[in-house]
Each structure stands twice: as structure tokens, then as C-alpha cells.
Design a protein around this nucleic acid. Structure first.
Lengths: 239, 239
DNA sequence: CTTGCACCTCACGTAGCGTCAGGCTGTACC
DNA sequence: GGTACAGCCTGACGCTACGTGAGGTGCAAG
């Protein structure tokens, strides 16, 4: 059943093919420019695509919809054997990274939108946004500087457990035990921020305005309790 | 505690500020070009940024990290009142859309990668990718054409239930009852594809090579059973 | 012969900068 | 005072995957 027998030596003009494939003429021009899909030409220099070109186009489209870049597609279509599998795996990894990135982003945005609902003025909201950003940058900078973060979370978790026990025992934030724990938190904070005032303020703002729901065993209620104890500490210094 | 008293009338040069904010000099040039952050100049025409500029920059950075575009940031910083809240809500909606998109993408990629593990040659894999794309395009085209899709899934589900009952009753795929159901499936497929051969083939390929885990009550086992019954139908026509 | 449509080839625009290229400024050292 | 070097300046092109014209050609119908 050759093309000749069935009369299927069909040729497509750009417009037809674009229509059929759900693309635009310009896109086909672009693919040709990249050497990704190079059609033949008529005497009048008009492009025409044969059956092979069309099949190639559908593959291109399929890989495009998976999110591969045009150069990547060109490469996997050139070196077909195991390259496709590797390309898909690489791309899967990238997609999963993107996914976690966007998920975090969405969570932050949700949090901020929730807060915005409950009538907070814009500058406070901006402040919260900025504080988040500042603290994250600080953490990133520490990691980039090669600071060993071993036991980083564990220590916070341990402090959280102690403070929660104190709170659950009904001790007021101004109690000696609570203030002692607050002092330890302050020391930890100082070590973490390297004494940077801006980061310390940003952290305070986050605790007050946008405490994370659950971070190393800390809850919003615990953060509030801590703030009470820290306030008691300050009163102690300058009564 | 004014700037004069504390001597904190500090001014930053571009390089310093870029370093401090974790950006590049070029980015700051760009922000100035957009009118987003316009510093003062020294006599020698060098940029310098004061405390207010720095604060503005940190807000810009924070909003950028939330994924807002630079024009959007410019706008929300100009018209601060409720604009920020609206912008965040809009952006949240976009983020959630992106999230579902990437999630679907990841699922497809995972599926394909799984199949690639079990040593399938590249062209078959490409074929599966292409078939997915083709079927999706067909569905999109139908929806764009305004085809009423009411009861679309329900009918497939009903057919699936009948076929599963048949399979669970131990009837062989070649039994009269199974072939009758296969005939009804064929009719549905024909109605769905509008008789388009390419889409029919793509669907057959998907059933065989990459059956979805769960779609309107159909499982891979059920798809295999259906293929058996369809094969029995064909044998019946030309024995 | 004109109308009209599909086609052709430039070529600029998009977002957010990266990355030269070529020239000026400011400071430190000799 | 000269000079070396870091840091600053202003263009201007590059990147993705095309969109969107502008200005000209090919071909069939009226």
C-alpha cells in the first residue's frame, strides 16, 4: 500500500498544516529557522510538507507539550536511541523542582491573602512579605557561606519542646522559668542572625505577623507565648 | 535619633547595594530604566542610593520573589492601598493554575519515565507521547467546537461497569456477551472521534502502551480485556 | 485586468536581565 | 605626579518561542 497506489502522496501547504496541527504559520517558520522541521519548496518557493514532515511535526508538538525546549527536541529527534529516555528523566526532575517551588509560593501567597482578608493595612502586609524574603536570604547566605547547619533544626525543636512544656504547665510568660527559656532563645537567635539587627527585626515581625503553621515543632500559640516571655525579659532589664 | 545624630546618612553605591541585596548591578540599572527604583547621582554621575531607596528595593525584591512582574510591582508600590491585596489574590490564582498544569505534566512525565524504564524502544515511546498529545488536542477541539460533553464520562463509566461485570463473571473476551459490549465501545469510540482514523489509532495505542491508571472507572486490566474482545470482533468479521 | 487570498522575507517586540565593549572616575601606591 | 586597578558609566546585542505587522509575490476567479 504505497503512496502511489492509494494516491496519498499528499502535500500540505504551511497554512493547511498549521491549521491541522493547531499551530500558527509563524511557528512553522520558526521551526524551520531552527532547523527543526525543514520542508521542501515548490518552484514558486512556497513551502510544502510531505507525510514524513507531518509525522515529525506531531512528534515535535508532543514533546513541546511535555515542556521540552526546542533545542532539546531537536537533539532528542537527532539522536533518538536512549536520548529520549534521558531527556524525559531530566525534564521530570526539573518539573518536580518547579512543582515544589510553586507549591511553596502558593502556600506563602495563601497565607498572605488570608492575612490581607482580615483587614491589615498594606504597609504591614508589605513588611511581612519583606521579612519573609529577608529571612530566607539570610538562610541562603549562611548556607552559601558553608555554615554547618547540623543540628540546626534539632536545637530549635528541643527549645520548642521545653517551652511548650513550660506553657502547658501553666507557667505565665513572665515566670522565671519562661524568662530563662526566652533568654536561651535569644542566644540562639543571636547566633543564627550573627547579630544582624535587620534580620532580628524581620524574625520578630514574622513571629508576630505571620507565624508559620508548623516549623520544627513550633506553633503560632507557642510563638505568642515566646513573645510574652521576651517582653518580660525586656521589662526585667529596664523596669 | 535622626540620621544626623547617629551619622547614619548612609549612601550606597550600586555595587554595594547589589551585593547587600543579593542582586546584580545590571538588575539595579534595569529597575532604574523601568522607573521602578531611581537613585540620586553624584557630581561624577555615579548612582547613589539612600536609606529610602534601600527600603524600597527590599520591598521590590520581596514582591519579585513572590513572582509578581516588575510592572505589577511598580503599580502596587505606586497605588499602595488595596492594590496589594488584589495583586496578591490575582497572583495566587495564577499560581494555582500553574500548579495544576505542572502537576499534570509531572504525572505524564512520570508515567512515560516508568514505561521507559521497562525497556521500550524510543519510537514506541515517542508514539505514546504523540498519541497523548493527539487525543488531548482532539478533546480540546471538540470542546472549542461547542460539542455538548454532558454525560460523556457517565456513558464511559456505565460501559466500564458492564464490561467489568462481564470480565469478573469469567466470560472469555471472545464470548458473545463480551463481543457485544466491545461493539458498543466501538460505536462510542466512533462517535467520540467523529470517525477520525488518526485519533482512533492514537487511542488504540494509548490503551495498549500507556493506559491511564484510573479513568472513569477503567483500569489497565479492563483495557486489556477490551482489546481482547475487540480482537475477537475483528476475527469475526474476517475469519 | 483587477480582486483577493495565501504565500514570501525581513524585522521589531516581548521579560528580566546577562554579558560584553569602550570609556570615565577614584583611590592607592610608587 | 604618574600609573595601576577597581568600580562606575552608557549603549547594545543575546536569550525563549514565537506574535505582529510591513511590503511584495503567486495564483485562481470574476
Amino acid at each position: 500500500m504505497s503512496d502511489d497506489e492509494t494516491g496519498t502522496t499528499r502535500r500540505w501547504r504551511v497554512g493547511e498544516l498549521a491549521e491541522a496541527a493547531g499551530l500558527t504559520v509563524r511557528a512553522l517558520h520558526h521551526y524551520e529557522h531552527l532547523g527543526l522541521l525543514v520542508p521542501s519548496r515548490t518552484e514558486a518557493n512556497h513551502r510544502f510538507y510531505d507525510r514524513g514532515d507531518v509525522e515529525r511535526l506531531y512528534r515535535i508538538r508532543a514533546l513541546r507539550e511535555l515542556g521540552l525546549s526546542l533545542p532539546e527536541i531537536a537533539q532528542t529527534l537527532r539522536a533518538a536511541p536512549g536520548a529520549l529516555r534521558d531527556a524525559l528523566r531530566d525534564h521530570l526532575a526539573r518539573a518536580e523542582q518547579e512543582l515544589t517551588r510553586i507549591t511553596e509560593l502558593r502556600d506563602r501567597l495563601r497565607h498572605l491573602c488570608d492575612r490581607a482578608e482580615t483587614s491589615v493595612d498594606a504597609s504591614a502586609l508589605l513588611g511581612a512579605v519583606e521579612a519573609m524574603s529577608r529571612v530566607e536570604h539570610h538562610i541562603a547566605a549562611r548556607q552559601a557561606a558553608g555554615r554547618p547547619e547540623r543540628g540546626f533544626e534539632d536545637r530549635w525543636r528541643a527549645l520548642g519542646v521545653d517551652l511548650r512544656a513550660c506553657m502547658d504547665d501553666g507557667e505565665p510568660p513572665s515566670s522565671t522559668r519562661a524568662r530563662e527559656l526566652a533568654r536561651r532563645v535569644q542566644a540562639r537567635l543571636h547566633a543564627f542572625t550573627g547579630g544582624d539587627q535587620a534580620t532580628l527585626e524581620a524574625l520578630a515581625r514574622l513571629r508576630r505577623d505571620a507565624p508559620p503553621q508548623e516549623l520544627a515543632g513550633w506553633t503560632p500559640a507557642l510563638f505568642r507565648y515566646l513573645d510574652g516571655a521576651l517582653a518580660a525579659l525586656e521589662d526585667e532589664v529596664e523596669p
